[in-house]
């Protein structure tokens, strides 16, 4: 992989095997096995996906619901292993998708900083060093010592955002529905992301809205039923997308 490539996706395919009826216990499994009724049907959620993202490039991923956008993101984030194909990443990826998905409700905000930070792969010393900064950005104040079960969903999202963005990632994965907290905090978080943009980090932006993709990205790809049907600069692709969804 060249030095200027941030992400390289080669012929990626993801195959799901779905049982016609859900078999999730030993009893059903044994019965179906004996009656030879264990049938599956397979389908490809993604097939033959190849593209590259250069460093500093902002790529929009367009597609309707069920086109395979989330599956692609899961593959890129390393959560889902592709059935075929290869993926090469250059640098640290931070997915700002579901903030605070790993929070423990009985833990206080402070304890969650360390737990969630550990899940993102940060070390204890590093988190200790950055702790004050995280709390300050989240604006939680004294609430940081209160168990998370007493937080509002906005407060949780604020804490999640503050921990996830404490290190500037090389590659940022963004979902269009990133609305963190109240209007004031949203402005602040949008500014933080914009600042990262200005410093030239690589961005993957998932959306089904052309407007947002046009304003944020310089290149785009379109997914349809698991296939990559177009890629190119954002203007050309969004014209194609407009035609496709008509």
């Amino acid at each position: 992989m060249g030095k200027n490539t941030a992400l390289r996706v080669d012929n990626i395919g993801v195959k799901f095997r779905m049982a016609n009826e859900r078999v999730d216990n030993v009893k059903d499994y044994a019965i179906k096995l004996l009656k030879h009724e264990l049938r599956y049907h397979e389908f490809w959620a993604l097939k033959d996906i190849s593209f590259r993202v250069a460093k500093g490039e902002r790529l929009g991923v367009l597609g309707l619901n069920g086109a395979g956008k989330s599956t692609l993101l899961k593959v890129i984030a390393g959560v889902l292993k592709p059935t075929e194909g290869t993926l090469q990443r250059n640098g640290r990826i931070v997915p700002l998708l579901e903030l605070g998905a790993g929070f423990e409700n009985q833990y206080t905000g402070k304890e969650n900083v360390f737990l969630y930070g550990a899940m993102l792969g940060y070390r204890r010393e590093f988190l200790k060093e950055k702790y004050d900064e995280i709390v300050a950005f989240s604006e939680l104040g004294d609430f940081i010592n209160v168990p998370l079960k007493n937080y509002s969903s906005g407060m949780k999202a604020r804490l999640g955002f503050s921990i996830a963005t404490i290190v500037e990632p090389e590659i940022l994965i963004l979902d269009e529905v990133l609305s963190v907290g109240d209007a004031k905090f949203r402005k602040k978080s949008e500014k933080k992301i914009k600042d990262m943009f200005d410093r030239g980090i690589t961005v993957l932006f998932v959306s089904h809205s052309i407007g947002q993709v046009r304003s944020l990205c310089d290149r785009a790809i379109i997914l349809e039923k698991g296939h990559l049907i177009a890629q190119g600069d954002v203007e050309t692709v969004s014209v194609l997308y407009e035609e496709a969804i008509k």
Binding site: E104, Q106, L115
Partner: peptide, 21 residues
């Protein structure tokens, strides 16, 4: 090595929550 801290955090979490309430 990278995730060693996570292991300690997970162990700590189980023990702490067991006695917290």
């Amino acid at each position: 090595k990278k995730y060693q801290f996570l292991l300690t955090e997970l162990v700590k979490k189980d023990i702490k929550l067991k006695y917290r309430n």
